[in-house]
């Protein structure tokens, strides 16, 4: 790591108002310390927010069917919360199927959604080409690189790096809102507007300003007992998704009244399959319908020789997740 100045402000307001260019917030450190050791991230200051105001941002609060979660809540705590597991199992699944127990103890859900890609050409600075690390330098993956793990949705000719997380797929499916404390005070943002596609500037991954601090996530309607997160990966645990689906259903008799679909492992950002949802809404919950929706979800896929399988796998994962969700108790 390069030298940095370490700060541990007492309050969120202190953290934001004393923010200086070149600084980074961090809490669990599972992304930050990892990437600093690789010289991929090199903040001049590290602002340790893990203990802000004695746990003020570590909470899980229900109000009717609305759920609000503090950004400094450890992944483990949210994954193991009985009420969350019962009322919106998708959220719980997306957490306990991620990473390892130790990492889930350390990482907080705010940082979790901002984790960086596992693209090997991003993580290793000895590769000259990486538009995400060094805008304008090119993309080693697209220039003859290894691309089995890369994205097929939301790609550009600049970058095909996969968004690696799981939890964000559930948040995007649930229409979550991000509560932010910025230099101009608090504001909120649709979770769907947090991440940006890797178009001209793949290094810009979110719409946040550097000093913006995520305080909480809120979900106005989190009552989806019929929901799940299905993650398909090369080994049974402790592996990134090859394809995953966060799916939720609300049934009105045999008709789909509401459906939510978040796709992981296949896209450059936490991916909401809105057209597929629209195709399902108001129709029957049948395998044929699910397969049609999956075709719609992946219609815009762009592939390489090595990751072309993710289209088929992504579709099958989505269909299976929907079938299993449909079988759940509503």
């Amino acid at each position: 790591m390069r030298p940095f100045h370490y700060d541990k402000p007492a309050t969120a307001t202190d953290a934001v108002t004393n923010f200086r260019p070149g600084a980074q917030y961090f809490a669990g450190g599972t992304t930050m310390v990892d990437l600093m050791k690789l010289d991929v991230m090199k903040p001049a200051r590290l602002i340790d927010i893990s203990g802000l105001e004695k746990g003020r941002y570590d909470f899980i609060k229900w109000s009717g069917k609305s759920l609000r979660i503090g950004a400094l809540t450890p992944m483990t705590k949210l994954a193991d919360d009985d009420k969350v597991r019962a009322r919106v199992p998708m959220l719980s699944d997306a957490l306990w199927l991620a990473a390892s127990p130790q990492i889930r103890n350390m990482a907080r859900i705010g940082g979790n959604v901002l984790q960086r890609t596992r693209c090997p050409y991003f993580r290793d600075t000895s590769y000259e080409q990486c538009n995400k690390r060094k805008p304008g330098s090119g993309c080693a993956a697209l220039d003859g690189g290894v691309t089995r793990h890369h994205a097929v949705l939301g790609t550009s000719d600049k970058c095909i790096a996969t968004y690696p997380g799981d939890f964000a797929q559930a948040l995007v499916a649930l229409d979550a809102v991000v509560e932010i404390l910025g230099e101009d005070g608090p504001r909120s943002l649709r979770f769907a507007d947090l991440h940006v596609l890797p178009e001209a500037r793949p290094d810009r991954e979110t719409t946040l300003a550097p000093s913006d601090l995520i305080i909480a996530f809120s979900i106005e309607d989190a009552d989806f007992p019929r929901s799940k997160y299905l993650k398909i990966r090369d080994r049974e645990s402790y592996a990134y998704a090859l394809a995953s689906t966060a799916s939720a259903l609300r049934m009105d008799g045999n008709t789909i009244a509401d459906v939510r679909l978040g796709l992981g492992g296949v896209a450059t950002t936490p991916w909401r399959a809105r057209e597929a949802e629209a195709a399902l809404r108001g129709g029957p919950a049948t395998e044929a319908q699910f397969a049609r929706a999956a075709d719609i979800a992946f219609a815009g896929a762009s592939t390489t020789d090595e990751n072309a399988f993710k289209v088929e796998l992504g579709k099958r994962t989505m269909v299976r997740s929907l079938l299993e969700t449909a079988r759940m108790e509503g």
């Binding site: 090997p120 590769y127 003859g144 690189g145 290894v146 793990h149 090369d234 049974e236 645990s237 402790y238």
Partner: peptide, 30 residues
């Protein structure tokens, strides 16, 4: 049979999954 393989960049002759998050060996759950 199922997990282990070091991936190589054919253009650059470099190993790309040179870590034990992506060079997969079985974990307990396997």
């Amino acid at each position: 049979a199922l997990h282990e393989s070091t991936e190589i960049d054919h253009k650059r002759a470099r190993y790309t999954n040179d870590n034990i998050a992506e060079y997969l060996i079985p974990v307990n759950a396997d």
